[in-house]
Amino acid sequence: MKQDQPYAAGAMIAGYAAIVAFTDNYVRVIAEEGGLWQFHAMRGAIALGLIGLVAWVTGQSLRVRRPWGVAGRSAIHGLAMLIYFGALAFLPVAQVAAGLFMAPIFVLVLGRLLHGRRMGLWSVLAVGLGFAGVLLVLGPNAVGGASVAGVLPVVAGLFYALGNMATRDWCEGEGALVLLGGFFGALCLFGCVGMGVLWLWPVDVAAGADGFIARGAVWPSGTFLFWTVAQAVGSMVGVGLMIRGYQVTTAARASVYEYALLPASAFWGWVLWAEGVTPVAGLGMGLITLAGVLIALAPQERSPVASLQ
């Protein structure tokens, strides 16, 4: 029987949160001159190379057992990350991460709607707390005229939830490196397709971060290359720590630790860009975290919600 190591798991997942929150804050720097599609194409290619290197060094197999399941899951998770990183060009990381962490809530709701799964009292309470929390974090964007940027994090959380459900339903028995490779492969493919479309049908591009989504391929500067490589390496190291954390403690406890990404994102936003978190937004993050804790610790909800950045 494997020994439970909750403190080690907490330290590793806290490391994951610190690394990912730091690198994600620099997407706004990439967005000033580069485009979303080129960023994902290059980041995905670098990550795939690193995955191949890890597989070769460790002797792990990259054989895909369920090609269509892995492809479908990769496409859904890849779409979630396209939306997530698109939003990072316009919004603070803590706000975008809060929307992404609605994924466990959506898993519950979709499980009820699509599969008729029973929701207990604690699950219903978690859903209510989570939605209230995200409304507080997103503020007027979520309840007023709602700019597209304001609701993007929640949309990313919805697709992330669908990808998590696909992981369980379509990809049983697949290795972690296979799923990670499929994820980054999908992002690389999306990036290449996006650059191709914008090359064939160019559109007017706004200056700076406002043109991040509409900008096609550009000659990369040293800053763009540095932070794109940092993103790829940071994602690989961070996700590796997170996966290891899940291996040394229970899935329920590890999934609670993942919510460290919210305060880590707020911390780096404050340190790097002097972005504060309002009391209302802080309360919203607290409610989202509490909802995740209730879901993770409820007896009927023991499956992990895997993170991929």
Rank of each mutant, 00 (worst) to 15 (best):
288 I>L: 04
251 A>R: 11
248 V>I: 12
256 V>S: 01
288 I>Q: 02
286 G>E: 10
293 V>M: 12
240 G>K: 01
238 G>R: 06
267 F>Q: 04
263 P>E: 09
274 A>E: 15
272 L>V: 09
246 Y>A: 01
292 G>R: 06
287 L>V: 04
270 W>V: 04
238 G>P: 10
254 A>I: 06
270 W>L: 09
292 G>H: 03
276 G>R: 04
263 P>Y: 08
288 I>N: 02
274 A>Y: 12
233 V>S: 01
263 P>D: 10
252 A>C: 07
252 A>G: 09
246 Y>V: 05
290 L>A: 15
267 F>H: 02
286 G>A: 01
286 G>S: 10
238 G>D: 10
273 W>I: 05
277 V>T: 00
253 R>D: 14
247 Q>R: 15
286 G>R: 03
243 I>H: 14
282 G>H: 01
241 L>P: 07
292 G>T: 07
267 F>P: 09
265 S>A: 02
235 S>T: 15
270 W>K: 04
259 Y>I: 06
288 I>W: 09
236 M>W: 12
285 M>W: 14
268 W>F: 01
283 L>V: 11
243 I>T: 14
240 G>N: 05
235 S>E: 13
242 M>W: 05
238 G>Y: 06
265 S>G: 02
267 F>M: 14
244 R>Q: 14
246 Y>F: 09
243 I>A: 11
286 G>W: 11
241 L>D: 14
238 G>V: 10
279 P>I: 05
257 Y>P: 08
289 T>W: 07
241 L>T: 12
272 L>M: 08
239 V>S: 10
283 L>H: 09
284 G>H: 11
258 E>I: 12
234 G>A: 03
240 G>M: 08
285 M>R: 00
281 A>E: 15
258 E>C: 13
265 S>T: 07
274 A>K: 13
276 G>T: 14
263 P>S: 00
291 A>L: 00
291 A>M: 01
282 G>S: 05
241 L>W: 13
250 T>N: 10
237 V>L: 05
